[in-house]
Design a protein around this nucleic acid. Structure first.
Lengths: 146, 146
DNA sequence: TTCATTGCAAACAGTTTGCACCTTC
DNA sequence: GAAGGTGCAAACTGTTTGCAATGAA
């Protein structure tokens, strides 16, 4: 983690290294508050401003991206390194997020770049709906009430 | 517009009809403030709360969707009616938004629904990058400075 | 020793809410 | 006439900023 920071031209501080580790070790998609909560376990005096400031710097350096699901705050995850990009399935009932990959998306971006003469920087695909667990639960409830 | 409101179970008020018209007549992707500004031309006493309240009700009724580009506020557009769904190309330089359609996206959602046993409600694809106008401008500047 | 980074408190922007009055049905 | 909608002002939430103290290089 420290070398990632150095490469990004940022000073290595315990706070920054810790936040990067939390992002790396998480299942992804944490929001600022959850990151803050986890950070305080190991560094009780860290402040929420540092969390926001660091996330924003990491975003500027292309290490982190900010996700918008249908909620009123952001989620953050480490950017994909290498070829393999991932996208998100979001359950509107329980809030669960599942990552997926698909060659269709890179095919799409290739087409768009050509057709619109766009230089593509990022592509986000968020598919929302009812996940299989919530659908099962829903069916169970319906069965009960009838 | 009034019948759209009635069908959604909402009372028909001049404010609501006006806001729906603004959304229909716009090129899409307006933010709350721009909608408010346009609404005041024809209905000077309308309030920003009414704009937010109405947008949120239209969203609940599935008539409007809230878009998150990489900005700190939302944009709104009328939902697609019928089969043809559209998605967005977003220019990170000038903020321009271009809509596109692609059969690849419906193929993708079909695959995902099957593979993850998801009941899909909505799919958002936002491709961001540098649009052709901004790329041209950028190249012109580079040419100048050398 | 220098300058970036931090924690704290205060500010901010976008959005939501409580309430008295008004409008639709 | 009852239920619901509106405008206004005040509240709220997530995020950002100013500043004095601290810590990395």
């Amino acid at each position: 983690m420290p070398q990632l920071l150095r490469e990004a031209g940022l000073r290595v501080t315990p706070q920054r290294a810790l936040l990067l580790e939390i992002l790396r070790d998480s299942e992804g998609h944490l929001d600022a508050d959850e990151i803050y909560r986890r950070a305080r376990h190991r560094h009780p005096r860290i402040s929420l401003s540092t969390v926001y400031r660091t996330l924003s710097q990491l975003k500027d350096q292309g290490l982190v991206r900010e996700l918008h699901f249908d909620e009123d705050h952001h989620h953050y995850e480490l950017c994909d390194t290498g070829e393999c990009k991932h996208y998100h399935l979001y359950c509107v009932d329980c809030g669960a997020v599942v990552e997926f990959e698909s060659p269709l998306v890179s095919e799409l971006t290739r087409q768009l770049a050509r057709e619109y003469n766009f230089e593509i920087v990022d592509c986000r695909v968020t598919v929302s709906g009812h996940c299989s667990a919530c659908r099962a639960k829903q069916r169970a409830c319906e069965g009960e009430s009838q």
